[in-house]
Design a protein around this nucleic acid. Structure first.
Length: 800
RNA sequence: GGACCCGUAGUCUAGUGGUUAGGACGUCGCCUUCACACGGCGAAGAUCGGGAGUUCGAAUCUCCCCGGGUCCACCA
């Protein structure tokens, strides 16, 4: 018997599939085009367990849909631009990002080798993408498309430039996306400041965690119904040291219970400040600079860090009688949490930013989402909720270097924006010439210094997959894409922005189906993350049990649900493969002289296994069409392992070894049918071992070059037979009882028994199968009742 | 705080109105049996988080409570 060595087999087929080009896509091949908007991985240099889950699903879908006759467009993409790369380059090579050219070159270098490693990893799970349908967001053609799309948005009147507070990490020296920040619990203090009210012999007390922001205070808010402050609205408060008079305003959103019920608005301390500043049209002062030091606005505190300033300021406030109370306070501080090495508190700094106007299109985005099928359906709600609650336009600019340049020039004097010429793309406005010499107001033009938010890049993947701007015929066939597979954590970003942008660019929703996967959890049930210390690397698993085993684990997850990593699942998958391997070999021994044709005489057991097989095909097809992998995999395994190996083969053995020609033919037919069709059903799940089994034992009959070029099996309802299944269950119950009897009497299972009496006449047609399986010298069927009870209310008698 | 998901034997999990609630891992016993000991056979083990309700009938539907997770928001 050949030995099952997953590593050897997997490597061999991975190479051969690519060599033979069996996954090559041809847009003109027959079948409906099934384009997959494969999530471009960020070029971190390594695939983690979440990628394995997500991409095992995608690979499964691609394989399944091919077998179902679709013309599957399965591309591979990489999302190259991002802060982590910049930080790594800055750290590893010590190049400051001000040195733009060299810095970018190093980023490219780093990215190139990251992609190389990741490509190997994709290959190592048996990924069946077409390596020619490939993109990187850093490629000129990709950048060109991103910039072109922005120019289109400009033409729609949706691009504008405005001063806006951005999330800024003073430690990393960059603007951050909302997705890169989070809240960190911190023990702090709440300070009660007491400021005089102008023209009245009164003071107002304000509780704050950020006293140093008082230099940027532009208003004090109280609740309109707060009796403590009746009559004060409209008065002015004098902010000491800066000697600024700021108004007292009222707003429903003030929490009367917190502190003193009075809050000061500083530009900018938090998002509420931003909202109020806009709403009440208040001035903007900047107290903190990009390096986290106090500005000249702060007088003698200028140049201090926020921490130093706070300490000094509090002393002064106390001496001057402005600080009346302090109390301990545990609160959540907005911090650069996406990067565990930083975790620095984030400041809101007002800066000129580029925006895309989107608020007026939210209903259209929701309509488009409603036209799509979501798997699971409830995930659509996340997108709708997000779209409903958005109250800012999209800030598309990032103060970074390694990214797609924003393709505009602007006039610093009049603010007019000039897009790049389309034939110039891709452009870098910091290097290239502007489309016109100077602004119509006579001023010279300035190129946009910023790069695009990475979601600007990745929100046109459905277009890029369909060769947008390159091949109209291709685009017609591949867009909208059929499938968008992704995790639920980026519904509010990737899914949202993609639907918004592509809808506006093409007038059509970008895809038909959205399949949403959950997050991978550690063995402790919490999501797998470095900070929890529960990370398991895919390589560790693959080097231990192989790619097919890790795929079985991934494909046993439920749609949209978090899924724990489990070594038990991996081992169980590996054991199944071993069983499948051994059973296939065993069956093949009896197929050497097999001629594929339906025999005339089938025994009841044969009709039973064929009934189960055909029902299984029907069930699997149905659940897989709904992307419910786990609901197919488990029954297929169970059928093969338990119905086929443990029961059918055991019952057919005697016939296969010693049966007549006719009897053997029937059993051979069943062996072949089950082996071939379960192999076909398993092929998308475990592509390597099924290919090897096909190569060794089935190819001679199928004449196919690869199992992955074959069609998904069809079921035939003529084999459905509930009656025979119910009888077979009874026969199995009898066999079980005899096994138990032997067990209790310490007899080997293959020991002969003298006589077996079965008090269940309807299963007499299984007489031979039962007799051969339990090795009874004589067998009788009788009315009445026996002494040994079996399951299903059957009784029997046994003589040793 | 909001939204969504989840709560089934020691552990993980299938099961969305009527099943003796299925399986995996673990445990125990038997079988070196002629494909497979990473095997086979068999045993013990859950009344389905708690409570109320709808129903002839609920793990499965409704409501409340408790617990866990994820995402979002977070309060000066």
């Amino acid at each position: 018997m050949p030995k099952y060595n997953p590593f050897e087999i997997e490597k061999k087929w991975q190479d051969k599939w690519i060599e033979d080009g069996i996954y090559k896509f041809d847009i003109n091949a027959p079948g409906e085009v099934y384009a997959i908007d494969n999530p471009p991985s960020f070029t971190s240099g390594t695939l983690h367990m979440g990628h394995i889950l997500n991409h095992s699903w995608i690979d499964f879908i691609a394989r399944y849909k091919r077998m179902r006759g679709y013309n599957v467009l399965f591309p591979l993409g990489y999302d190259c631009h991002g802060l982590p790369t910049e930080l790594r380059v800055a750290k590893e090579y010590g190049i400051p990002k001000e040195n733009r050219k060299e810095f970018r070159e190093k980023c490219e270098e780093w990215t190139t080798q990251a992609i190389k490693r990741m490509n190997e990893q994709y290959k190592s799970i048996g990924y069946s993408c077409d390596w020619n349908e490939y993109y990187e967001t850093r490629m000129p053609k990709y950048k060109k498309a991103v910039q072109y799309s922005l120019i289109k948005f400009f033409e729609m009147g949706r691009i504008y430039r405005e001063k806006h507070p951005v999330l800024w990490c003073t430690k990393c020296g960059t603007a951050l996306a909302k997705a890169e920040v989070g809240y960190k619990e911190e023990k702090g203090k709440l300070w009660y400041l007491r400021f005089p009210i102008v023209g009245k012999d009164r003071h107002i007390e304000i509780a704050t965690t950020r006293p140093e922001l008082m230099f940027a205070c532009v208003a004090v808010f109280v609740h309109p119904d707060d009796e403590r402050y009746y009559g004060l609205a409209g008065s002015k408060v004098l902010i000491p040291y800066v000697n600024r008079e700021v108004p007292i305003l009222t707003d429903e959103e003030v929490d009367r219970e917190f502190g003193t019920g009075a809050v000061y608005l500083c530009t900018f301390g938090d998002e509420m400040d931003i909202k109020w500043q806009k709403e009440y049209n208040l001035p903007v002062y900047v107290a903190i600079d990009k390096t986290g030091r106090m500005t000249e606005l702060c007088g003698k505190y200028k140049g201090m860090t926020t921490k130093q300033c706070r300490e000094e300021l509090l002393k002064d406030l106390k001496n001057d009688g402005y600080l009346v109370k302090e109390e301990d306070y545990i609160h959540n501080v907005l911090a650069h949490t996406e990067r565990s090495a930083c975790m620095n508190p984030v400041e809101f700094l007002p800066m000129e930013q580029w925006f895309i106007k989107l608020k007026d299109k939210l209903d259209d985005v929701i309509d488009a989402a409603n036209q799509m099928q979501w798997y699971p359906a409830y995930m659509k709600q996340r997108l709708v909720d997000w779209a409903t609650s958005l109250d800012w336009d999209w800030i598309i600019s990032r103060q970074r270097v390694y990214g797609t340049p924003i393709p505009f020039w602007y006039c610093e004097k009049c603010g007019k924006i000039y897009p790049a010429r389309v034939d110039q793309l891709p452009v870098d406005p910091l290097v290239d010439k502007p489309p016109v010499e100077k602004c119509e107001c006579g001023n010279p033009l300035k190129g946009a210094e910023d790069t695009c938010d990475c979601w600007v890049d990745s929100s046109i993947t459905p277009l890029m997959v369909a060769h947008w701007l390159e091949d109209d015929g291709y685009f017609e066939k591949a867009y909208p894409n059929y499938l968008r597979p992704q995790g639920y954590e980026i519904i509010r970003t990737w899914a949202f922005y993609t639907i918004f942008r592509d809808l506006l660019l093409t007038g059509k929703p970008p895809f038909k189906h959205v399949v949403v996967n959950g997050m991978v959890a550690g063995t402790d049930g919490r999501k797998m993350a470095k900070s929890f210390g529960n990370v398991i690397e895919p390589e560790e698993v693959i080097s231990k049990e192989g790619a097919d085993a890790i795929r079985q684990w991934a494909l046993n997850a439920s749609l949209g649900e978090d899924y724990p990593f489990s070594w038990k699942e991996i081992t169980h998958g590996a054991k199944f493969q071993k069983k499948y391997w051994n059973a296939s070999y065993f069956a093949s021994q009896f197929l050497k002289d097999y001629k594929p044709e339906e025999p005339e005489q089938l025994r009841p057991v044969d009709r039973w296994i064929l009934s189960k097989l055909n029902k299984l095909i029907k069930h699997s097809t149905e659940v897989l069409d709904r992307y419910e992998f786990a609901k197919a995999l488990t029954p297929i395994r169970d059928f093969f392992w338990h119905d086929f190996c443990d029961n059918y083969i055991e019952m057919a053995k005697a016939r296969l070894y010693n049966g007549t020609e006719e009897e053997r033919k029937a059993a051979q037919y069943c062996l072949y049918e089950v082996l071939l069709k379960t192999s076909l059903m398993l092929a998308p799940f475990i592509p390597h071992i099924t290919e090897e089994i096909h190569e060794l034992y089935l190819k001679q009959f199928t004449k196919s070059k690869s199992i992955h070029l074959m069609k998904w099996p069809e079921y035939n309802e003529k084999f459905f037979n509930d009656e025979i299944e119910s009888k077979a269950n009874k026969a199995i119950a009898v066999i079980s009882a005899v096994r138990k009897f032997k067990n209790e009497n310490k007899m080997p299972l293959n020991a002969e028994i003298t006589k077996l009496v079965i008090y269940e006449k309807p299963i007499q047609e299984f007489e031979k199968d039962i007799q051969e399986t339990v090795k009874a010298k004589t067998i009788e069927f009788s009315d009445g009742k026996g002494n040994i009870e079996c399951e299903l209310d059957i009784t029997i008698d046994i003589e040793k």
